[in-house]
């Protein structure tokens, strides 16, 4: 008899799911958009922003995050050629991600030592903590995606592997750009 099968294999499943990640990126951007607009209106009405010289760690952490993005890009490129290479780059991305998170926390401690606490009568300063904290939550989620790509590499089908790599890439590059946006935003709106 003639029957039909829904095309369960391959990208039939993948395309809509990848789109879901993009939509998540959009809504997450909007959440940060909400905070940055709070900040703009707040600093606009007060005539001042956070008024801090941001800790230097942020410069280094930004570099680390960019480096991790590059590693992830290399991992994507390597996936066709060599699983070992792909895994090596993925591992590097993961480690750099953790280093980044650690550096963000050390920036917090520097700020607190300098008297710029989270609980502050200048909501602009509290906002720096909010930005970094929620950005770090994204980092944790991104690390999970990278881990899933890492452990999947070589075990799952090439198609699934590519899919996981793509999901991880979309998300990780997004949080990279997001951080750069937040950092520049904070630099510009003292």
């Amino acid at each position: 008899m003639v029957t039909t099968l829904p095309k369960q294999t391959g990208n039939y499943d993948m395309k809509p799911k990848k789109f879901i990640v993009w939509l998540f990126v959009v809504s997450s951007t909007i959440m940060f958009g909400g905070w940055t607009s709070y900040y703009l209106v707040f600093s606009g009405s007060k005539g001042k922003g956070h008024g801090l010289v941001l800790p230097d760690v942020f410069i280094y952490s930004t570099l680390v995050l960019v480096a991790s993005s590059i590693c992830l890009f290399l991992a994507s490129r390597a996936q066709r050629k060599s699983t070992a290479l792909q895994k090596r780059y993925l591992g590097l991305t993961f480690i750099l991600g953790i280093v980044f998170a650690y550096m963000q926390f050390s920036a917090w401690s520097q700020m607190s030592l300098g008297g710029a606490y989270f609980i502050n009568n200048n909501a602009g300063i509290s906002m720096i903590y909010v930005f970094t904290f929620f950005h770090c939550l994204h980092i944790i989620a991104g690390l999970c995606l990278i881990a899933s790509a890492f452990f999947g590499a070589g075990k799952v089908t090439a198609e699934r592997n590519a899919y996981r790599m793509e999901i991880a890439s979309i998300f990780w590059h997004f949080i990279d750009i997001l951080w750069i946006y937040l950092y520049v935003f904070l630099l510009l709106n003292r």
Binding site: L23, V26, S27, S28, I30, M31, F32, G33, G34, W35, Y38
Partner: peptide, 10 residues
């Protein structure tokens, strides 16, 4: 998608 995240922010 475009408006609920702002509520979360608030």
């Amino acid at each position: 998608i475009l408006s609920f995240p702002v509520l979360v922010a608030g």
